[in-house]
Simulated scan of single mutants.
Amino acid sequence: MVPSLRINPSVGKKNLGFTLLEVLITMTIIGILTAVAAPSFITFIKRDRLVTNSNQLHSVFKFARSEAIKRNQTVSVKTSNNQWQVQTAINSTQTTLNIFEVTHSSISVDLKDIDISSAGELDQMYQILVSDSDSTTTDFTLCVLQSGQSWLVEAPETC
């Protein structure tokens, strides 16, 4: 004998979806959370742009210094069209080995022409500022000693 199923017509009809009040409360909570999180997220993006450009600039300088030592010849880092080009003479021809270019229009970099000797040394100390001209973020400075040692600091710290 098969048991018969009883179906209660009132069960399940009330729980078929969300009420208008539940949807409005959920949307209000999402709106409040978005309003609170948006400024922090924008600041995070700006800081990430500065950090990325600073690290890339530092990486290109370290590459240029290592190439000067490896090739046992002078390597120049020249400013051209808002780029920093690592150049050296190969078979009496000036050749570009690497290029640093700012990745976002809001970032400005105080690029300088630098000659790195075959020993990895420079003629003077350099401080290269990476900035976005925004007071809500902290700028960075690439510090390069005459010995060729380099590191990044958060501005307004000095080298």
Rank of each mutant, 00 (worst) to 15 (best):
residue 153 V to S: 03
residue 104 H to A: 13
residue 153 V to F: 01
residue 46 K to Q: 12
residue 44 F to Y: 15
residue 107 I to Q: 04
residue 133 S to M: 07
residue 140 F to T: 02
residue 32 I to F: 07
residue 76 S to F: 06
residue 19 T to P: 06
residue 65 R to Y: 12
residue 71 R to I: 01
residue 142 L to H: 05
residue 135 S to P: 08
residue 47 R to I: 04
residue 104 H to K: 13
residue 129 L to A: 01
residue 51 V to K: 06
residue 139 D to H: 10
residue 17 G to M: 13
residue 28 T to C: 11
residue 126 Y to H: 04
residue 132 D to T: 01
residue 21 L to E: 08
residue 147 S to Q: 02
residue 86 V to C: 05
residue 133 S to C: 04
residue 3 P to D: 07
residue 39 P to A: 03
residue 80 S to M: 05
residue 128 I to P: 07
residue 150 S to V: 00
residue 31 G to F: 05
residue 25 I to E: 10
residue 88 T to L: 10
residue 44 F to K: 12
residue 86 V to L: 08
residue 159 C to E: 09
residue 31 G to D: 09
residue 40 S to T: 10
residue 69 I to Q: 11
residue 31 G to T: 02
residue 11 V to I: 14
residue 48 D to Q: 12
residue 147 S to Y: 03
residue 108 S to G: 00
residue 30 I to C: 14
residue 80 S to C: 00
residue 118 S to G: 10
residue 73 Q to F: 07
residue 152 L to D: 14
residue 41 F to T: 12
residue 107 I to K: 03
residue 152 L to T: 14
residue 16 L to S: 14
residue 102 V to C: 04
residue 126 Y to P: 02
residue 146 Q to P: 00
residue 136 T to G: 13
residue 63 F to S: 02
residue 82 N to M: 03
residue 8 N to C: 07
residue 4 S to P: 13
residue 26 T to R: 00
residue 43 T to M: 06
residue 84 W to I: 03
residue 159 C to K: 06
residue 88 T to D: 08
residue 142 L to K: 03
residue 89 A to N: 04
residue 54 S to K: 04
residue 132 D to H: 02
residue 51 V to Q: 12
residue 44 F to A: 15
residue 90 I to D: 09
residue 83 Q to M: 11
residue 137 T to H: 04
residue 81 N to D: 12
residue 105 S to G: 05
residue 103 T to G: 15
residue 117 S to V: 05
residue 145 L to E: 13
residue 117 S to Y: 14
residue 78 K to L: 14
residue 135 S to A: 13
residue 68 A to D: 11
residue 92 S to H: 13
residue 30 I to A: 15
residue 42 I to C: 06
residue 151 W to H: 14
residue 128 I to Y: 06
residue 141 T to S: 01
residue 8 N to E: 15
residue 99 I to S: 08
residue 121 E to M: 09
residue 91 N to F: 05
residue 92 S to R: 14
residue 39 P to L: 02
residue 6 R to F: 12
residue 86 V to I: 06
